[in-house]
Design a protein around this nucleic acid. Structure first.
Length: 115
DNA sequence: CAGATGACCGCAG
DNA sequence: TCTGCGGCCATCT
């Protein structure tokens, strides 16, 4: 197992990372989500960085569409060129500069709140 | 223990 | 939407 998300204090972000995985897994194809939104859904709008860090530490064994998670500006993950290919296959709208068109491809996360 | 780093966010221009 | 500045939080050095 990975040695992440655990500390000696016993009080860990197990519910935090778990919720992150659940949310990311619920992202439909052709849609993307931002770290801030995910962090807010969990209840920690300041933990946006932790979301990104958690995904990076995430092993490939886990089946998560982390490529559908981008930052607020629609910027893709630096150093991960494959992400653009995956999103392109998802029929996600891109801009000329290579950023995702948030207005069109942003996941309507409100549906999860209504449910 | 303090400083630097990072798959970031919000605000202002 | 993009850039610059400050802030937040956990990990690394």
């Amino acid at each position: 197992m990975v040695k992440d998300y655990k500390t000696d204090k016993g009080k860990v972000d197990e519910n935090f990372c778990r919720d992150v995985y659940e949310i990311v897994k619920n992202i439909p194809e052709g849609k993307v989500c931002t770290y801030g939104i995910i962090a807010r859904l969990i209840g920690k709008p300041q933990a946006s960085r932790m979301v990104g860090r958690a995904l990076k530490h995430l092993p490939e064994s886990v089946n998560l569409p982390c490529h559908r998670v981008v930052n607020a500006t629609g910027r893709l993950v630096p150093g991960w060129n494959e992400q653009s290919l995956l999103l392109n296959d998802e029929k996600v709208c891109f801009k000329s500069n290579g950023c995702v068109d948030m207005s069109l491809s942003l996941w309507d996360y409100e549906v999860i709140l209504l449910k």
